[in-house]
Computed example of a mutant assay.
Amino acid sequence: MVRASHAAAIVLLAATSIAQVGAQAADAPACRGTIYLTFDTGSQSQAELIADTLRRHHIQATFFLANEKTVRGDWSLDPSWADFWKARVAEGHAFGTHTFDHVYFQRDEADGRIVVKPQFGAHAGQRLTWTQQQYCDELRRVDTRFQQLTGRHLDPIFRTPGGHSSPNILAAARACGYRHVGWAPAGFSGDETSSDTFPNALLLKRALDKLKDGDIFMAHMGIWSRKDPWMPANLEPLITGLEHKGFCFATLKAHPDYRAH
């Protein structure tokens, strides 16, 4: 008899818990759309702020990685950043390559080659003419380093520095399994612009007014040149404002243009 009563109590408790979960799910606001937050490496001055903000809001984002000079005096893909990137992997974020030496596109050549200009590395500031295989190798350098740091491969996506792509670059990337990711017109954070001409309040309002379902948003993990940095002032209000408008967030692995890839 005691056992029967105990079993009945367990069943009642389980039913109550299920009902509570169901009520909470019913109370939760439905997503009116999805925004895909993406962050490119930079000076890394905002790296911890980004991580803390995403964690508090339970948001998973997508990071595009290059080996860039940081405010700590090291490089963003040095072993000194291994714990940071491992933590982001554990949180379920997505990761793409941004070219190892932050290589800017200059122009396409008629024979399929690509004229580029690395910002960092042994050939920083030099104009180089690469074959498509060399460009592919540059994309893969990030994957190799990321695997060394975290034990995980990158997702098969990339973003060129500045977002400038070309037919030859896209062909090179396709040959080694990568798809290019840009951003929506309203998804440009403006963190590279002059803070005198584009103050943070203006950039925040523009994003909140114009971002729509399916848009990819891009910001950097720290910019050397902007006098009034975008990130500390705008990241939290941007996320909160979008949440209040009913938006949810996801990595590019859930984006309709990239999830099958």
Rank of each mutant, 00 (worst) to 15 (best):
S165A: 12
P161G: 09
R56N: 09
H123G: 13
I18H: 09
H220R: 11
H220T: 03
Y104E: 10
F198R: 14
D196W: 07
F95Y: 05
M221D: 08
F39Y: 12
P232L: 13
L238V: 07
P161L: 15
H93Y: 02
A51T: 04
Q147Y: 12
I216E: 00
A61W: 00
W230G: 08
A47F: 06
Q24M: 02
Y178K: 05
P185L: 13
D83C: 05
F188P: 03
L252M: 03
T197W: 04
N168V: 10
D215Y: 01
D40K: 04
A7N: 14
K212T: 03
R179G: 07
L211Q: 03
E109Q: 09
S80A: 15
A61T: 09
L208K: 01
N234S: 15
D213I: 10
M231T: 15
D78V: 09
I59Q: 09
G121E: 06
A110D: 13
R72H: 14
I169M: 02
R32D: 04
G92C: 13
G214E: 04
A171G: 02
T160I: 12
T38A: 11
T34Y: 05
T129R: 15
R206H: 07
K227W: 00
A51I: 04
H220P: 05
R226P: 05
A25Q: 10
K205T: 14
G33H: 05
T62S: 11
R55M: 06
T251D: 10
L235I: 08
F247S: 12
H261N: 10
V103L: 07
I114A: 08
Y178V: 02
A173D: 09
P29F: 01
L238W: 03
R179C: 05
A250Y: 04
R32P: 08
L149K: 04
R174P: 09
T150Y: 05
W85L: 02
H58T: 14
F247C: 15
R226V: 01
Y135H: 10
V89R: 00
G125S: 13
D52K: 12
A47V: 08
A25E: 11
S80L: 07
T197P: 02
D101S: 13
S17M: 14
Q119F: 06
A7V: 14
D209R: 13
T97K: 12
A25G: 06
H164D: 12
W81S: 02
L242I: 06
T193P: 00
V11M: 15
F158P: 03
C31Y: 00
M218G: 00
S76C: 03
R145W: 01
S76H: 02
T99W: 07
A15C: 11
N168M: 11
D257H: 13
W130F: 14
F39V: 13
F158Y: 15
V11E: 15
S80R: 04
K117G: 12
G187Y: 07
R3T: 11
R226Q: 00
C248I: 11
Y36E: 04
K245P: 10
A30D: 03
A233W: 02
G182M: 09
Q148G: 05
D155A: 06
A87L: 01
A219R: 10
A8F: 14
I223M: 08
R55I: 08
A94L: 00
